[in-house]
Structure formats: C-alpha cells, structure tokens
Nucleic acid binder design. Structure first.
Lengths: 352, 352
DNA sequence: TTGAAAGCGCTAACAT
DNA sequence: ATGTTAGCGCTTTCAA
C-alpha cells in the first residue's frame, strides 16, 4: 500500500505539504499542488480512510438503519436519503435490521464504533436503545416509527431532554389508518377487520388506533376484528387466516384494512386459498403504496406515504445537524416533522 | 469518550491487559478479566473501531454493492449475504449503486478507503473497475453479472491472471432466457419480442442472446423484435411502447420476454394503456420472480433465479477467502459457480 | 508558505 | 501473566 510518505518523497516535499495539497488547503503553493497531485497519481495513492478518520474523529458516511430491505417503502426512503447524502458529499451505508432487535443493536454498535457522521433509523420499537449514539454525540434522525425516551447514562434514569436529542420525520399514521377504515365503511362494507403488525411496533399500534377510531365514530356500532402478525408476507397470511376462519360467520370480516404492503401480499394468498374475491366478497385497503398495487386484480386501494420525501427530509435534517455539530452552521431547533398521507382509491375497496 | 486508558485506571491494570481481556486473549488471569469487564461496563466503554481497524489493518465489515435496492432480486440476495455474514461475525454494509457507474465507483472507493474485509459486487458493466480493490488485496466476489479483465497497475495493461483474482457466482442467464422464449413459442405465440436492459449491462446481453438462440432454433423462421431500456419500470414501459407501437402490424410482437422484474411492471403499464390483455392478446414471461408475480392478473410466468442462494454462496466464498488471506485457512481455488434457473409457468404465458 | 513532530485510540511485539 | 512502548497513516498544531 502506497502511503503519504511515499508521495512526499516522490514529489520532493514533506508529508504535511502532501496532506495540505490533497485536502485543498488554501495556503499551499499552486505549483507544489500540481507536483503533489502528479506524484500521487503516478503512484496510485489513495488516502487511508481509517487513519484519516482516526485523526479527524469523523467520517463522511451516514448509516441508514431500516427494518426491512424488501419492503418497497424502505427502498423508496433509501433513495431519498441517498440523493441528499450524495449532494452533500456523504456515502450511505444501508443496514438491514430485518425486524430483528438484535440485528438492529449490532448495527447501532457498528455505527458507533465506526464513528459514522450520523444515523437515520427506523427503530424496531420504541424501546430501541440509541442512548450510546446520543452520548457519543452522533447526530440522529428517527423516521417512520417513534422512539421512546432515551435512557440516561445510569440504569433506570431517563434524560429529561430526550426529546431534544434527535430530529424525527414521521407520517400521520393514525389519521391515514382512520381514513382508510372510514373509506371502507363509506363504500358499504359492514364488518371491516384490521390486520396489523406486532405489539412492539409503534406503527402497528398507530394503524390499529386509526382503525379503532374510525369504528368508534361510525354511525352504527361495529365490532372490532383484529389480528396481528410480523410485518411480512407470511405474517399477513396467517393473520388473515385467523380472521377469515372465525367459527362464527358474524365474526368474519367482509373487508380488511392491512397495515403494510408486504403483509398485503400474504393476505391476498389467504383470500385466494379460500376462494374469496377481492372487491366482491371482500373489500381491501392497504397502508402503503407499492409498485405492484395498480397491477393486481382488482387494483389495490392504498394509503400512500411520501416515502422518498421522508428519506430526503431525514437526510437534510441530519446533514444540517452534522454541520452544526462541526461548528459549520447554526444549531437548528429540534425538528419533529409530520408528513401527510394520501388515500389512493383503486378498485379493491369498492363493492363491485 | 471513554477510552482504553480510562478502563485501565478504573480496573487498576495496564491498558495492554484491558485490550487482552476484552479481546478474549487466553493468557490473561480470569479474575482480571472480570475486573476489566466490570470496569468497562461501569464506564460504558466502547472500543473505538477506527483505532482498532487502523492498528489491525482490517475490519469486520463486508460491503455488498448492488445495482438497485428496489429490485426484489437484489433484496433477496442481500438476505442471503446477511445471514451468512452474521453467522461468521461480519456486518454487511449495503451500497446501492442505483445503476449509476459513478455511484458505484464512489462506493468502491469508500470500500477501499475504509478497508472493508471484503466486497461482493454486482457490477454495473463488465468495465467496472475493481483493479484498486484487487491491488489492495481486498477479497472480492462478483455476482449476477460478469466482470471483464481487471486492469493492471499501468494503463492499458491487463492482468493475465485476472480470472484468478476473484470468485464469482452467476446464474445461467442465457439458458434461462432461451427456455423462456422457447416456452412462449411452444405455447403458440408466433412473434415473441424481447425487452432487455441497456447495452452495457452484461445480463441484458445474455438474456437477449438466449432469446435470439431460441428464435434461431425455432422450426419456422421468426423475426427478432428487440427493444432496450434502463433496468427499471420506466425503462420497461418505454421499450414496450416502442415494440407495441410499430408502424407495421407484422412488426408488432404477440408475446414479450422481459429481462427483469422492475421492467415487467412498466411493460404492464404500456400493455394496459393500449387495451391489450395479457394471456389473450399478448403472452408474457419475465426473467426473475417477484413477490407480486402470482398476484397480478393473469399470474406472471417467470424464470426464477435462486437469489437467496446466490447471496449465501457469494458470502461463503468471500468469508473463506478472507480467512485464507488472514492465514486462518487454506487458500481455496478460484470458484466460478453457475447456478440454474427454473421456469415457473403461471398464466401469463399461456394462450387463454 | 513549508517542515517537524505530536498524537488520534488501539494492538502486539518485546521486556519483565 | 502482566506492563511498557512502538507504531498503524494521517492531520494539524507549532516553529521556522
């Protein structure tokens, strides 16, 4: 490996000059800059990032910790984050926690140890522990799911200023879920059920809460019908089976509000296996749009989230905070952004 | 930030002992190990990964450079890589090159500078430059798309031993594409067209080659009908439009072989816009399965790749090579694995 | 403007 | 078995 000393010798200058020349320090003689550049090219010199990071105590890398790479929502978020990061000179390292708390914890530890410049995370649950990151002074933006109070340095102690510890970008989940359910009711379905994620996932709770709120506000009384499963295709299938196979026909839903897109595919499996027809025997609305939603039969009605925008905003807030932490900008006030969702009516929610 | 010296003081030992204790060095008194552990816990010590990497000249991190996070094929590959990596104590950093050569180059540079333990890459084109990685001795496994000869240290020079420079895990693309096209012909479609990726993408060429081979072997002569576009939904839509809108009806395909799944969604858009019905007016086969494929109407016939397995094998080969490079195992012979594809017949390819 | 040298936090070779 | 110390390759004072 060719190092800075080799370049210095080749260019006939000191290593300090090489460092300054390569980092565009203004105080160095332009002629020397050229000589150094050429020498570096000739030798194929590539600065050792690790050494640089150790010295600078910082990196040009952002970590994006998401719950599931195969969920189109998160890939859209990823795009937004990447585009903003790239414009600002950062690389994005994507960490797929895969809905597993241990995997998430591992990535958070790696992020801390490798001293990334900042972290954007969609926490598995409100209990996800980011206290070390906060303590290490690594800027953090939380997306998609809220985080509970951050633990303080001593056990059992929480930081009263936890809210100020990080920015967040969320979506109006409760409202979107309520809108979806009201839409189902308005379309003439009488017993909408709700298929949501696990108890520890905040988004699962919010979407359920919206569903319940809609039922509560309905003119006639409607019995809540709820099933849970992991936020994946298999989870949706099992949960749908649970609801659809209820012993009492009166307990079987005639419509389904599904809390995320991967689950919806599983719900569709269960529906088919039972010979049910969406739009005829069963109404359906899904929280989250997906590329395939317009192409299935009937086309899926969804609550669309501004996924790309969430990624963009999260990255913008993070970059601003990194800059501020480096003293290269004003300290922005803590942001808690709430973006809105859209009901996209296609065919699955309409009675044929 | 609490560092190793602080722990040493707290535990009343030297920093060397702390280092050894925390790294499970066998030669250290178990009683001291406990003392050190406790001291470290008490202080909330977290080793500085950067400093460690600088000293050790290595990392516990693998980089996985893929062309498109939103393609389900790559997310399945990612899962395979992650599972193997985790079992072997590595973290995976996912780098989304997004089909852009510059972005890919940036990530490769980051991987080199941050000295990741190894890289798995699905190269944008055969021209992707991995010479620096090879020169830096970073083990590399190539997946999905082949890489051309690796450039040598001097311009214009190629390394004759380039084939031995890295392992690869690919899929029988040509054969799969040929099978798909033959299936279309056998199902009674008479003018199958091919929608493939850009000229510089090797998989686009391979899939086209398979298509052409099938036409060449057909009993009656069949005119090739080919359109290209970026490997995305919008690319598929534009390419399909090109074929479907041919001035001469005789030049319009009555079936389509589509080279990847994201493109297929775009093709479906174009098909709908023209009021065509898949399975009736138009046969369709897609290279690559996708979670939504069984759920669209009619269900999509696909060439399924063992995506998860590709990721697993790539990671296994990489880990073995990293071990070997560290002297912790035998040097494996260069592997060039070729996995097989499966034709999954659903409804889209059958004449109703 | 340039160079010499200190040190980022850690591991490992060497000394005890 | 434990401690002392020399670096890993770089950036950045400090001195010239």
């Amino acid at each position: 490996m060719v190092k800075i000393g080799d370049v210095a010798r080749e260019a006939g200058v000191s290593i300090a000059t090489v460092s300054r020349a390569l980092n565009n320090h203004p105080t160095v003689n332009p002629e020397l800059v050229d000589r150094v550049r050429e020498a570096a090219d000739r030798l194929g010199y590539r600065p050792n990032g690790i050494a640089r990071n150790l010295r600078r105590q910082s990196t040009d890398v952002l970590a994006l910790v998401i719950s599931d790479v195969s969920n189109p929502f998160f890939t859209a978020v990823t795009r937004g984050v990447e585009d903003v990061a790239q414009r600002n000179g950062y690389s994005v390292l994507l960490c797929n926690a895969d809905e597993q708390p241990e995997k998430e914890a591992t990535y958070l530890r790696v992020a801390e140890q490798e001293q990334v410049a900042g972290v954007i995370i969609s926490p598995h649950s409100a209990g996800t522990d980011v206290s070390r990151l906060v303590a290490a002074g690594i800027p953090l933006t939380v997306i998609d799911r809220p985080l509970g109070p951050v633990a303080g340095p001593r056990e059992g102690e929480t930081r009263p200023d936890a809210r100020g510890a990080f920015d967040s970008v969320m979506v109006e989940s409760v409202g979107g879920a309520r809108l979806a359910t009201e839409h189902l009711l308005a379309a003439g379905w009488v017993r909408p059920g709700c298929i949501t994620g696990p108890l520890d996932a905040a988004t699962a709770e919010q979407r359920l809460a919206g569903y319940l709120a809609a039922l509560g506000a309905a003119p006639r009384e409607v019995q809540p019908l709820v099933a849970r499963g992991p936020f994946r295709q298999a989870g949706g299938r099992a949960a749908a089976a649970e609801l659809l196979d209820a012993a009492e026909p009166a307990d079987r839903p005639d419509a389904l509000f599904v809390a995320n897109a991967p689950m919806a595919l599983g719900v569709l499996e269960a529906v088919r296996e039972r010979g049910l027809r969406v739009g005829i025997d069963l109404g359906m609305v899904v929280f989250d749009d997906a590329p395939w939603a317009p192409f299935i039969e009937p086309a899926m009605t969804v609550i669309a989230q501004p996924a790309y925008r969430i990624g963009e905003r999260a990255a913008e807030l993070l970059v601003a905070r990194i800059r501020a932490a480096a003293g290269a900008g004003p300290v922005p006030p803590t942001a808690q952004e709430l973006l809105t969702t859209d009901l996209v009516v296609r065919a699955s929610s309409l009675r044929a």
